[in-house]
Design a protein around this nucleic acid. Structure first.
Lengths: 132, 132
DNA sequence: TTCATAAGTTCCGTTTTAATGAACTATTGA
DNA sequence: TCAATAGTTCATTAAAACGGAACTTATGAA
């Protein structure tokens, strides 16, 4: 008889237990902020492995797992086991009620910076005109 | 004849070289964010030693020095040697032009959290009425 | 059922990074 | 010239991040 699936308690902090420094720490890593920006912008939840290639070279699975744990334990995402895979949903709306404007400002800053990187890359790319 | 005072180049990143992750990292430490919040809120610049007691137990001098270096190298403060002491001024206004809303949101969140800590402490204090 | 595969996690050795006492370097004032 | 003060640097230790390998659980096929 199939018993309930693995329901080991995945710890999620209560909203009021989240801290600014925890949030800033979690998002101060380039891989984690990229993951979070992606999760936060998607309407649908995503699984772990879809993020193996957020970075080049690809992030090892074990490292990715740690990154997700840090995002979860600092209150940034909600994780749910779905069969063999894990799905993540952002907790932006909740955090917004506790620390208004914080997450939007960070995501906005991240967008600005990402835009710069893309611009720099395309300037350096052999496909671009380079200095004319 | 007295030569120019020690003017070893104190490195400050150009505004456009500051990064979100650098800023978040610098402010993800409780001591550093407390220092920065203080500097950002003061009209007058302050020296290093006035922050020895931002934390209890007091932060060792060598540790403080590192904290200030991290704030400076990540573009959060401008440091100037004035005789024997070092003075710091916030770079909030600059950062605001690059990452609008980021610093105010972080400082606001920090205020919220500090307020909670004070409230909790006074609830637990023997001088307060405690549970009535 | 049994086996193979796939998704994540955990373990553990290695590498980085942080913390801090002690020694050191300016600068000022007596 | 000496003493005191503000910060920095260095060296040691402690803590945290990284990532390969082994492990666990779920699923689907035979």
């Amino acid at each position: 008889m199939p018993y309930p699936l693995d329901v080991r308690p995945l710890f999620h902090p209560a909203l009021e237990d989240t801290t600014v420094e925890g949030i800033l720490y979690a998002l101060s890593d380039p891989v984690r902020v990229a993951i979070y920006a992606d999760i936060a912008s998607q309407q649908c939840t995503q699984n772990c492995s879809s993020f193996l290639t957020v970075s080049d070279p690809p992030v090892p699975k074990s490292t990715l797992s740690q990154h997700f744990r840090i995002l979860r334990e600092n209150g940034l995402v909600r994780a749910e086991r779905h069969g063999v895979e894990m799905r993540f949903a952002p907790r932006c709306a909740e955090i917004e009620t506790r620390f208004p404007g914080l997450i939007p400002a960070i995501l906005n800053a991240h967008r600005i910076e990402s835009g710069e990187k893309v611009a720099k890359k395309s300037r350096m790319s052999p496909k671009s005109s380079g200095r004319r």
